[in-house]
Design a protein around this nucleic acid. Structure first.
Length: 471
RNA sequence: GGCCCCGUCGUCCAGCGGUCAAGACACCGGGUUUUCAUCCCGGCAACCGGGGUUCGACUCCCCGCGGGGUCACCA
């Protein structure tokens, strides 16, 4: 049996990382088993649809490399893969159920229903629609909601992640399969699609677990064999008190791209919330994830989204990149002042900050002074515990001596070191002080790459003029 | 509230009846170093509680407690 999984988002806004994790696990299972991964757009709620968000979702998936074998833009044998284009299919199945007496029109108004619900709540008992099933329902003319008739019974099933799960008959009720606007509900049409598209493993996040009996019962009514269900543990926000959601401020996935997070790092991070391979390995390439992923090792308990860990992993993945590869990825992240800079020069600058980068948006802050004259603020001196002890005259004297020494320097790293180290002794000071002063002068910062390499890359002209400016 | 799921360091997690309860992130020390970062050493820190079962429970069972989810013409 070929494994077929799917990711079926609603185009109601940007994709956030909690949802990405669901997509990732489905994708990993398909890729691991050499099966197929489908993308299906579930746009049956016209009111909530956000124009353009389906494109945003696809863009995010492409950025992450979660490629789909069938879906919008990649037609396959079971298309279309957009639910609003499949309305006829759902209607056909609905009609069949009506004819068999397995579905019926709902005669109640929204208000009447609401009143019944409130009454039940006031009496502290669960509301069940089936207690109010109309005895002689009106013929379904398509303007009333259509309900499926489900037999109330207890269900027990095997979930690929949670194991044995059971729920009582109160979890089953006649639910709406076609809304008054003619669109099907998720509960109904996703089952039809998953079946028709031969999806073998259906992954859903934990919020759906109590709906599973409903899905199973629907399969029974349709006389279909249900797929393997897998409930994924929730990803919680940093407070640990709520599921990650855009309402709670989860950032869109593409924000991470714009911050300069690498897709492989994001995938690595998300995969290890709720899954591990049982070894001590923490850093994975995407290929390794594909090779090692298995549903059986997916955790039952939820995990917190700890961005610090993502940042750490991103740094690891950046360091693993070759300089050439990293350079390719930095496009769009350089400071404005680097706009017309020479590619070779930028590449060299990049080599100096390669292992310091945690995410690419840090690039301007780390490299700006290589491209434009830094402003040396007073604070750079006063906030440096070594330099603030120096008087202005002492500083001038040191810089003068440095300028003097560098006059005949060829500005190779070796020569710079050969000149400046002895100067420390001659000036009767400490390396931290002299080098710190030079660094502040030429970079405008107390934090920068190694001094000699920085001076070498900057070259004699800029270095000397910046030093002179300090006097 | 009913129902359901979950419960190991602050965080991600290993463990699957017998371990000094491992690793990583974060944090704190120390080393390397001209700063930062990297790298290397070290430290802090956990089995929710109570009952069982057992020669022996983090591991199995029950009851609490805690957290999350769900009870829509949303997905």
């Amino acid at each position: 049996m070929t494994v077929r999984t799917r990711f079926a988002p609603s185009p109601t806004g940007a994709l956030h990382l909690g949802v990405v994790r669901t997509a990732l696990f489905a994708w990993l299972l398909a890729r691991h088993s050499g099966g197929q991964f489908l993308l299906r757009i579930e746009d049956t709620d016209q009111k909530r649809e956000v124009p353009g968000s389906a494109d945003g979702i696809k863009e995010a998936l492409r950025w992450l490399g979660l490629s789909w074998d069938e879906g919008p833009d990649v037609e396959g044998p079971y298309g279309p893969y957009i639910q609003s284009k499949r309305l006829g299919i759902y209607k056909k199945y609905a009609q069949e159920l009506v004819e068999k007496g397995l579905a019926y029109a709902d005669p109640y108004s929204v208000e009447e229903l609401q009143a019944l619900r409130e009454k039940a709540q006031a009496e502290k008992r669960p509301f069940l629609y089936r207690d109010h099933r109309p005895e002689n329902p009106p013929a379904w003319d398509g303007t009333q909601p259509l309900r499926i008739k489900l037999e109330p019974k207890a269900w027990e099933w095997d979930d690929a992640v949670m194991g044995k799960v059971s729920m009582g008959p109160e979890m089953i009720d006649d639910y709406i399969i076609i809304k008054a606007d003619g669109f099907p509900t998720y509960n109904f049409c996703h089952i039809i699609d998953d079946h028709l598209m031969n999806v073998t493993h259906v992954m859903r996040s934990q919020e759906f677990i109590s709906s599973v009996p409903k899905f199973l019962a629907t399969h029974e009514v349709l006389r279909w064999e249900p797929p393997i269900n897998a409930i994924l543990p929730p990803v919680m926000d940093e407070t640990g008190r709520a599921k990650l959601s855009k309402r709670k401020g989860a950032k869109p996935a593409l924000d991470y791209r714009d911050q300069g997070f690498l897709p492989e790092a994001v995938l690595n991070f998300m995969a290890t919330i709720g899954w591990n391979d049982g070894t001590e390995q923490e850093v994975y390439t995407v290929e390794e994830l594909v090779a090692k992923f298995e549903l059986a090792r997916v955790q039952k308990s939820g995990g917190i989204f700890d961005e610090k860990r993502l940042i750490y992993l991103n740094g690891v993945h950046i360091r693993r990149l070759s300089l050439d590869e990293l350079y390719l990825r930095t496009e769009g992240f350089w400071p404005k002042s680097a706009e017309n800079a020479d590619a070779m020069y930028k590449r060299t600058v990049l080599s100096l900050v390669h292992e310091r980068l945690k995410y690419l948006a840090e690039l301007p802050g780390l490299t700006e002074f290589f491209f434009t004259e830094p402003e040396v603020k007073e604070a750079v001196i006063t906030e440096n515990k070594q330099l603030k002890k120096l008087s202005a005259d002492e500083r001038k004297a040191m810089i003068s001596a440095t300028l003097n020494e560098l006059e005949t320097c060829d500005f190779t790293e070796e020569d710079l070191e050969k000149r400046l180290r002895p100067l420390v002794e001659r000036l009767n000071t400490k390396t931290g002080i002299l080098f710190g002063l030079i660094r502040a002068s030429i970079t405008g910062s107390n934090v920068a790459p190694g001094l000699f390499e920085t001076m070498h890359v900057l070259g004699p002209e800029k270095t000397l003029s910046r030093l002179k400016k300090m006097i």
